[in-house]
Amino acid sequence: MKKEERQKWKQQIKLCEKFGAKRFQKVVFGVEKAKFKVLKTIAPNFIEYYDKYCDWKKKKALKRAKTQEEKDMIIQRAQFEKMAMRKEFHQEKNRNYHMDSKKPTEIYQYLEWNKGVHKKGMIKNAILLPIFIGGSIMGVPGALPLAIFELLSAGINFECINIQNYNIGRYKIMEETMKKREARTVKKDIEEFGQASEVIYSTMKKKEDLPSWDEILQGIRNPEQLKQFREMLLREQSNRVAEKGGVRI
């Protein structure tokens, strides 16, 4: 990265910090923790409902698909979406806020997407706030609480955009390093778990839905695949323990 570009990103990070990015990020993580606790309490079967939603979206998209390639893409997208939501729900980590250490470059698209959502929110606030302020001045009932709500919403949207700009700046400075790290991780994974991954891939390609673990097991043909599966699962367990700092179940 050129020196001027690096300087530009560093200036952006400093500006975002001045507007409270680091402090608000703590609030966001606190809200995220509470969100998952509440969700797991009131909707422990959330994954089942989400799967049904994914299947409904997939069915609609498949009706419009014209080629087999398009259909395959739609099915693949639905499978990956289900897996991504399971990962979020089980590990209590929103994909917009947490970088995957194995796929660090993936976070960038989520940062930009999240920023876009809050930008649209701010546009809505910019339109409605003056209307409700005008309404409350004219004595329209209910306009004042709505104006206060829009003002709070605008503040939250602004801080969320600020956090994303802060994280985008941090990401951009580290981007080259992260791409190299990701390439090394993928290469190492292929060397260590290539055969096991192939079993998972072939099992998933046979059906539209996610296969069960028993269906994956049936695809194991030799001791090397068994050994790789075992090592893959043990490594995943140990990564989670390291991240949680907790006791292995």
Binding site: M83, I200, W213, I249
Partner: peptide
């Protein structure tokens, strides 16, 4: 690389309990 993508996504989507049962 495609196999690796599928493999790691599937394993990462498993809950802690599912990992133990799978082992």
């Amino acid at each position: 690389e495609i196999h690796q993508k599928y493999g790691s996504a599937y394993i990462e989507s498993m809950s802690d309990e599912e990992l133990v049962e799978a082992l």
